[in-house]
Nucleic acid binder design. Structure first.
Length: 495
RNA sequence: GCACGGAUAGCAAAGCUUGGCCAUGCCGGGGAUUGCAAAUCCUCUUACCUGGGUUCAAAUCCCAGUCCGUGCUCCA
């Protein structure tokens, strides 16, 4: 069953093959570290984390590079505003980046290059582009001349040069600075007073935004690599600029075998932006929402579709997540005791309910793999896991003795760990799950009072005095206590 | 304006490349269980934007149209 991926450049799903058998080189554009990460970053890096995990699970050795843009206008602006050294801003935000990504259970990439470490190679590439007359030197920097390679235009957006000229309207003439043409973009920016600078053949200055990814991908992978990823917004101009720079510099095309772009996150139907006041940072959200629940909510959509974040979505994710955890927890518990038997061969047509149930679960795990192989369709994969939780719950009722129970528990545990755990990344560690939850101090305060009322209520119930029993429950409810009657007797929780 | 993507049940959202079966979860209906609740289990109803076409058969393919989102400027 071949893996198929949607390539932005070809605009269709195609079979996935790598340049070097069994190995995948993957470059994903990282963050500009001028501030905390937001929900959109979470979506992007969870999407590529899933791709990373699935490729590894499929037997590929993945070399995953994700950069940090650690010098740019916004960082300089922050530094001027706050008086803090730009290097301190950058270091601090990189540290919080890793904290946020760890909280979301995102596995580390193999390399996290920073663009300021690559200024020399950027200068070398720019110099080469000037030599080859793909770039020109102006008063205020060096620019890439797009008309020097018109055949490369519009590869990711499908736009022709003429179309852009039309669409840009009045802006076409406002080339600004030393740019000869509206379409051209900066490779090197001459320093303004007070800005951080690096020496170059064109005077002191700093690199333009696009050139860093060219330098870093070239350094790690050479002229061509398998997957280039990033947010949907980066297709143009950033990724098209990379195509120009890299392919004109190396003479090798295409730069990347597959271009993957994740869809955006909206909040309550509106674009997330600071001006609308609906800007969610990852740190803020994980205060309110379990990071695993957030991860499930984001994974529960195809990575290319836009996703609308709202209360209902999180509520659904919360519910689904706790159902999965319930099953996982009971699997862990029954896997612990008793001696293990061999389970029957899974057979969907069998009259043995155990063999049949196992057969259905085998089918679901195959469905999970098919979903992930189909352009990393995590939405469908989640559906398979949810369908499996019911089946696993049913399976665990089928054990007739301890040996069965343990074998079934182990089977359920492995089923979930293979899919929800290792791939979707939404299972907490077993230790964490089985640990006794910390007692709420507010609970201890009223415990005696509640226990006394519960005893009274049990007496009332024993005497079939239902009005009295319900009155006590109402009384408890006023204390903020919810009572549920279970087979082991009444239990209570704070609301 | 140009480009890219989308329109599926009350809601969210897969499936469309390779036409024929079935998404999935929530909500709602019915039932089991329960003194009643909660939880759990069983079960059911409700769909493929519109109009044409192709076909034994269309959510899926073709043609035309409508509506929506995003990009074209720093953005994951």
């Amino acid at each position: 069953m071949p893996l198929r991926v949607h390539d932005t450049r070809r605009r269709e799903k195609v079979d996935f093959t790598t340049q070097s058998p069994g190995r995948v080189s993957m470059y994903v554009c990282g963050v500009t570290v001028y501030d905390h990460c937001h929900l959109g970053h979470a979506r992007c890096y969870i999407a590529f984390d899933l791709i990373h995990r699935w490729l590894e699970a499929s037997g590929y050795d993945v070399d995953y590079v994700q950069n940090f843009t650690d010098i740019d206008d916004k960082i300089i602006l922050r530094s001027i505003e706050s008086g803090e050294d730009w290097r301190d801003i950058v270091d601090r935000n990189i540290a919080t980046y890793f904290e946020d990504m760890d909280a979301l259970n995102i596995l580390r990439a193999d390399h996290y290059p920073r663009c300021t470490e690559y200024v020399d190679s950027m200068i070398h590439i720019i110099d080469d582009l000037v030599q080859k007359e793909h770039a020109y030197v102006a008063d205020d920097g060096v620019y890439f001349h797009v008309d020097s390679a018109p055949e490369k235009y519009g590869q990711l957006t499908g736009q022709s040069i003429d179309a852009v000229r039309q669409g840009a309207g009045g802006r076409v003439n406002e080339t600004g600075g030393g740019k000869r043409d509206h379409k051209d973009f900066a490779l090197w920016k001459q320093a303004k007073p007070g800005e951080p600078v690096w020496p170059s053949p064109w005077g002191e200055g700093r690199p333009g935004w696009h050139i860093e990814c060219t330098a870093m991908s070239l350094d790690h992978f050479g002229a061509s690599f398998d997957i280039h990823g990033g947010g949907h917004d980066l297709r143009f101009p950033h990724h098209e600029a990379e195509i120009f720079q890299s392919e004109c510099h190396t003479g090798h095309a295409p730069l990347a075998g597959y271009w993957l772009h994740n869809g955006f996150v909206n909040i309550d139907g509106e674009k997330m932006s600071k001006s609308l006041g609906n800007f969610w940072t990852i740190r803020d959200i994980v205060q309110k929402v379990d990071p695993f629940v957030l991860r499930l909510a984001l994974v529960n959509a195809h990575y290319r579709s836009p996703i609308d974040m709202n209360e209902q979505l999180l509520k659904d994710a919360q519910r689904n997540h706790s159902r999965i955890l319930q099953v996982y927890e009971s699997a862990l518990r029954s896997a612990m005791d008793g001696r293990q038997h061999a389970l029957p061969t899974p057979d969907i047509a069998s009259s043995d309910p155990l063999a049949k149930s196992l057969g259905l679960l085998e089918r679901l795990v195959e469905g999970f793999a098919q979903a992930m192989d189909d352009d990393f369709n995590s939405r469908d994969a989640v559906a398979k896991v949810l369908a499996a939780t019911k089946q696993l719950q049913h399976l665990m009722t089928l054990g007739t003795d301890d040996g069965d129970k343990r074998a079934i528990g182990n089977y359920a545990k492995e089923w979930l760990e293979e899919t929800a755990g290792n791939i979707l990344g939404i299972l907490p560690s077993p230790d964490l799950l089985l640990a006794e939850p910390e007692e709420d101090p507010r609970k201890a305060e009223i415990a005696d009072q509640v226990e006394a009322l519960l005893v009274e209520r049990s007496d009332a119930r024993a005497n079939k005095d239902w009005p009295r029993a319900d009155a006590i429950r109402d009384q408890l409810s006023e204390l903020g206590v919810v009572v549920t009657d279970t087979a082991e007797g009444p239990k209570w929780e704070l609301e």
